[in-house]
């Protein structure tokens, strides 16, 4: 009998609404913090020390926090996993850092591009940050898509699992621009004996709709 792949765990952060949800349960909430301050508060309150966090742009901070909380909550903290992929989907790519970079180079008389900002002007950097932190050696990939789309996410999952080197994946939608920073990350595994919900387009949609409607 074919083993169904399972959603082992998921995390959700909406920095605009100042909430963190793990597996459907709101685990952290503040009020009236802007996006940057909220993400820093989550880091300081819920995560282990990792000074590089402060150097990341908003997009990477969001992805990093999603992965940290996901791995801690699911008991999947072990490092050096060679068969785990990371796939991230978003709409605005690295626009937050792109805009900052543009501002630093548009005046010829005040031309001081920041190397530390420039390194974040690619949307796939977040996958590298997570892979480096956890010493993952599997596939990492970043997609641009107009909005959260459970069908699209399921297709990405299916494609990733075609490669027999991959047995699990951190699959994520992470969107950040201006006053918005919202993301969800799933840990999905095809290994036998794992507990969780069977992964399907419908389930990926149900989880998202519940999070969006839970004001």
């Amino acid at each position: 009998m074919k083993q169904e792949s399972k959603i082992i765990s998921y995390t959700y952060i909406d920095a605009e609404r100042n909430i963190v949800v793990i597996n459907g349960e709101k685990v952290f909430e503040t009020e009236n913090l802007d996006i940057k301050d909220f993400l820093t508060k989550v880091y300081k309150t819920l995560c282990d020390s990792y000074p590089k966090f402060y150097k990341m742009d908003i997009h990477c901070k969001l992805g990093y926090l999603l992965s940290e909380l996901l791995l801690e909550s699911s008991g999947n903290r072990q490092k050096g996993i060679e068969d785990r992929a990371i796939a991230v989907v978003n709409s605005s790519s690295s626009l937050c850092s792109d805009i900052k970079h543009q501002a630093s180079i548009e005046d010829n008389g005040n031309y001081f591009p920041s190397p530390a900002n420039f390194v974040y002007t690619l949307s796939n950097i977040v996958t590298g940050e997570i892979a480096i932190r956890n010493k993952y050696y599997g596939e990492t990939i970043s997609y641009i898509h107009s909005s959260y789309d459970s069908k699209y996410l399921k297709e990405i999952f299916d494609l990733s699992m075609v490669d027999e080197c991959n047995n699990s994946i951190l699959l994520s939608w992470i969107e950040s621009i201006d006053t918005t920073a919202e993301g969800i990350m799933f840990l999905i595994s095809k290994e036998e004996g794992k507990e969780g919900v069977n992964v399907s387009e419908k389930e990926l949609d149900n989880i998202w709709q519940k999070l969006k409607n839970n004001k």
């Binding site: 920041s114 190397p115 530390a116």
Partner: peptide, 13 residues
């Protein structure tokens, strides 16, 4: 190494 580049920018700026 990125910090080193940032320090070089800081010196000039």
């Amino acid at each position: 190494s990125i910090d080193a580049l940032e320090l070089i920018v800081l010196l000039e700026k």
